[in-house]
């Protein structure tokens, strides 16, 4: 780890100004990902701008029935908040499925959105990786990839996004707010993460130097009936091999509204729009759920050792929607 400067900032404009002045600077939130990457040499910032004391640690209900969540709210506080648990229980479950109690106490919402892939080639500076060193290659394609992407990947990178929180946020149409030297801006979640293409090192649409200040969750009554389920290689404290956020509103046996998003299958939390379209207005039956999953997964491109994820996600869609529809009937 190289030597670096450290500044603790107390106002957003000060933070943005400091970062703008130093291209080798990084914002430090909980540090649960950045400090680890600094230890492995993947990140080598010259200066850290500690944003933990910024006044962005509140969760507020918006007048329209949504929520505004500050960027420095910790994962723990997000998952424990009564409004989150009541209006978006699937989001609380997603956050609780991630990492450990210790890490959730440290990690922040803003940092969670910007966390990097856990691909074992990305985190090993002795190996090539197009995300870390553009143009160096993607050894995962020929190598170890049993937990790599099946959707939206490219020949340049097959890494997955590790967030659980993000999967629920994309299902609930979160909007990311940020601040730059030129003033504030916002990005809908659908536009926040960039397609992989031939630029896997460019991960988000945030302007250079932007500081995430928070996210808003628009009102979504369907989200009150939501869940998150995560499959991983041990029962807890592990990244997903496949996860799903779902919300369902069934009226008279017909799908009135549905939200579905997948984790651990793509370079970003994956909103299953094709499945949602296939389901909306149709019957809430097992056959329809399976057909919707197939509609989404038709675009899957698998490698020799990750093809099981297609089956896994299909089964998770059916199981999740079946569970939600049965509960709705009860």
């Amino acid at each position: 780890m190289r030597e670096f400067g450290y500044e603790r900032v107390h106002d957003v404009s000060g933070a943005v100004a400091l970062l703008g002045a130093d291209p080798d600077a990084r914002y430090l939130g909980g540090g649960t990902n950045l400090v680890d990457l600094m230890k492995t040499g993947v990140e080598r910032p010259a200066r850290l701008i500690d944003v933990r004391d910024l006044p962005l640690d509140q969760i507020e209900a918006t007048p329209d029935g949504g929520l505004r969540i500050g960027a420095t709210v910790t994962n723990s506080d997000l998952a424990a908040h009564p409004d989150v648990r009541s209006r978006y229980p699937g989001l609380a479950q997603a956050v609780l499925a991630g990492a450990s109690g210790q890490l959730r106490n440290m990690a922040t919402v803003g940092g969670n959105l910007l966390q990097r892939t856990r691909c074992g080639y990305f985190t090993d500076t002795a190996k090539p990786c197009n995300k870390r060193v553009p143009g160096s290659g993607c050894p995962a394609i020929e190598g170890e990839h049993h937990n790599h992407a099946i959707l939206g990947a490219s020949e340049h990178c097959v890494a997955t996004h590790p967030s659980d929180m993000g999967v629920a946020l994309t299902a609930f149409d979160a909007v990311v707010h940020y601040e730059t030297a030129d003033g504030p801006g916002e990005l809908p979640f659908a536009e926040f993460y960039l397609p992989v293409g031939d630029t896997p090192h460019l991960e988000t649409a945030l302007p250079p130097g932007a500081l995430i200040t928070g996210i808003t969750l628009p009102p979504a009554p369907v989200a009150a009936h939501s869940r998150y389920r995560k499959v991983r290689e041990r029962a807890s404290y592990a990244f997903a091999i496949g996860s799903i956020a779902g919300a369902l509103d069934v009226r008279d046996g017909v799908v009135h509204e549905v939200r579905l998003a997948f984790g651990a299958v793509a370079s970003r939390p994956w909103r299953a729009h094709a499945a949602e379209r296939a389901l909306t207005g149709g019957p809430a039956t097992g056959e329809a759920f399976a057909a919707a999953a197939d509609a989404e997964l038709a675009a899957a491109e698998t490698l020799p050792h990750n093809g099981y994820k297609v089956t896994l996600m299909r089964n998770l869609v059916v199981a999740m929607l079946t569970e939600l529809s049965e509960e709705a009937v009860r």
Binding site: Y6, R8, L28, G30, G31, T32, V35, D36, L48, D50, R52, S76, G101, Q102, L103, N105, M106
Partner: peptide, 16 residues
């Protein structure tokens, strides 16, 4: 425990 909450001290910079 940091401010009463559990945390992993290996990812917590001392200066922070």
């Amino acid at each position: 425990l940091i401010d009463g909450r559990r945390a992993v001290s290996c990812l917590q910079l001392a200066v922070a």
